[in-house]
Simulated scan of single mutants.
Amino acid sequence: MERLQKFLAAAGIASRRKSEELIQQGRVKVNGQVVTTLGAKIDPSRDRIHIDGKPLDTKEEPVYILLNKPKGYISTVRDTHGRKTVMDLIPKHMGRLYPVGRLDSQTTGLLLLTNDGELTYKLTHPKHEFSKTYRTLVKGKITHEAINQLEQGIPLEDGLTAPAIVNVLEIKDGKSLVEITIHEGKNRQVRRMFQAVGFPVQNLKRISFGFLNLKGVSPGKFRMLTSYEINNLKRSVL
């Protein structure tokens, strides 16, 4: 079971806020009944959802894509300002897909796209602690103190981050190349964490998502997940 507005947002119908507005305006029906209560829960595998009288097909053939996102693309299904989105990199015949989590426009690397709303919800839920590893180039020679802070948790305006795993790969020419693994998905989290300890990010790339990596996938390209990978993802969030 998952909240209706979160499912609509994950399905690419609208942003979370706009999905809430659709519900409050009485434009969404679940099993023939208008739902106006925010937080109402649905079962995507069973419930029939209509928006403005049109059915939302929740039983599409599942599609799972691993994309190597380049710079300059935003991780949304559509953009009202005409900016490039990750969907511009995927053939339209593959149907309605939506990103699993977000990478900001200047962050590159591994991004999953799928039409499996239930799996998206589980992979992005903090309780499953699904790991994401980033390789980042930061300004300055990173200190042991900063590393310890990152590993223990950084107080941000939206809460304390969970402990991270940090590995320094290289320090050269007044810059540090660092790998960091986190288990959360706060907005622009890695950038804000390094900024908080005094080492602003100059370049950021997600190199792995759980056991998945970018091997064989060039920037701007994608591949389908194998059945083995799909099953592993589902098992990891049971």
Rank of each mutant, 00 (worst) to 15 (best):
R192M: 00
G101Q: 15
E145G: 12
R17H: 12
L103V: 10
I171Y: 02
E145A: 08
N213S: 13
L66D: 09
T108I: 10
H50R: 14
N148E: 15
K84V: 05
V30P: 08
V190A: 05
V30Q: 05
R102C: 11
F222N: 15
V77F: 04
D43G: 02
K172G: 00
S105F: 11
T76I: 05
I90C: 02
F199T: 06
S19P: 09
I154S: 03
R96H: 14
L67P: 05
K122F: 00
Q106S: 13
M224F: 15
N187A: 01
L225M: 11
D104R: 01
F194L: 12
I182R: 07
L177Y: 01
N148Q: 15
T37V: 12
G220W: 02
E129R: 10
E129M: 14
P163G: 04
K172I: 06
L4H: 06
H183W: 09
N187D: 03
G95Q: 00
T143A: 05
G53T: 11
T76F: 00
V138S: 08
R235S: 10
I65V: 15
P99R: 06
V63Q: 13
E129L: 15
E170N: 10
K6Y: 02
N213K: 06
K234Y: 07
Q149D: 11
V237Y: 02
Q189C: 09
D173K: 10
G216R: 10
G174T: 14
H144K: 14
A162F: 07
K84Q: 12
R102A: 02
L89P: 06
H81V: 03
D79S: 11
P126I: 13
K18T: 05
Q202A: 00
K175L: 07
K59H: 11
L119A: 03
R17S: 14
H81I: 04
T58D: 01
I207A: 00
L103H: 06
V190T: 13
E2Y: 14
L119S: 03
L233W: 09
Q24E: 15
P219N: 07
T226D: 06
T114P: 08
R78M: 04
K186T: 01
G39C: 08
T136M: 15
T161A: 08
D116Y: 00
N167I: 11
E157M: 05
S227P: 01
M94C: 02
G82Y: 04
V77A: 03
K41H: 13
V30C: 07
D116A: 01
G95A: 02
P163Y: 09
D57M: 00
S45F: 11
R192H: 05
H144P: 04
N115E: 10
N31R: 08
D47K: 10
A146E: 07
N187S: 04
A14Y: 05
G198Y: 02
I230S: 09
K141C: 14
L160E: 07
H128S: 02
L204Q: 11
G117N: 03
T108F: 09
I23A: 01
M87V: 04
E145D: 15
